[in-house]
């Protein structure tokens, strides 16, 4: 008997001892299709303005910085401001996300905009989030050509653009969005939920920012 069959047989011997196999199968398919939500914390269940405020407050609590702009055309300006304030070279990397491609780069003549996945030589990358999560100040970043996963981890500075209307209260709302876009039971190859810059507490349990991932996470919220 294969390892698979003997493992499953041992489990089944215990689990099926009640005799109601049909009931067990129904319970499993009901849970997989129904995806019950469980206990929803009140924290994130807010009206639009308060939800956005909570998102910002939580993200800052976990070490992110925030800029707000009125329109996608202003994103490039906000990126340039960030680079200047941190004495960074005028070079960034972005993916194919259409919203980012039309983010006003023409107005920033000195800014070098590179495209595609990172090879580890970029100091700054800009991604567009699928959504924000107010409850924990988290941004959700699916993989793909629009926003390559390497941009989330290799550069020292990660700038994430998130649309105010995409700020959800909780993680469960992200699942609804993904099911709406991809279908039930489907996921992008990778989904990164990012909360603040990378950190480690492995030396004497002192929390230090900038472990192996980005040293800084900057969020630009577009109205």
């Amino acid at each position: 008997m294969s390892a698979r069959d003997s493992i499953l047989a041992r489990i089944r011997k215990v689990n099926a001892s009640g005799g109601d196999e049909e009931g067990r199968r129904q319970a499993v398919s009901a849970r997989l299709s129904g995806s019950p939500r469980g206990i929803m914390p009140k924290r994130g269940q807010l009206a639009d303005t308060e939800r956005r405020e909570l998102f910002q407050a939580m993200a800052q609590t976990f070490g992110a910085t925030i800029a707000e702009v009125g329109d996608y055309a202003d994103v490039a300006g906000a990126v340039s401001t960030y680079l200047r304030e941190h004495n960074l070279p005028a070079s960034i990397r972005i993916g194919d996300d259409a919203r980012l491609k039309n983010a006003g780069w023409d107005g920033e003549r000195t800014l070098d905009v590179l495209h595609g996945a990172s090879d580890g030589n970029d100091l700054v990358a800009v991604s567009h989030a699928l959504a924000g999560i107010a409850e924990t100040g988290t941004v959700a970043l699916p993989s793909g050509a629009d926003n390559p996963t390497t941009l989330n981890f290799l550069p020292d500075h990660h700038i994430v653009v998130v649309k105010a209307a995409d700020i959800e209260g909780d993680l469960e709302s992200i699942w609804d969005r993904l099911r709406g876009a991809l279908g039930k039971g489907q996921m992008p190859r990778a989904l990164n939920l990012v909360t603040g810059p990378s950190r480690s507490g492995d030396i004497e349990q002192k929390i230090l920012l900038g472990a192996h991932g980005p040293r800084a996470l900057h969020l630009i919220i577009v109205d």
């Binding site: 939580m58 100040g137 793909g144 190859r189 990164n192 939920l193 909360t195």
Partner: peptide
């Protein structure tokens, strides 16, 4: 409240994926 990185991985690189 939440660790910095929570990552859901589903299968290998897909058509059009530039990394992974």
């Amino acid at each position: 409240d939440m660790s910095c990185y929570t990552t859901y991985s589903t299968g290998p690189r897909r058509k059009g994926d530039p990394d992974g």
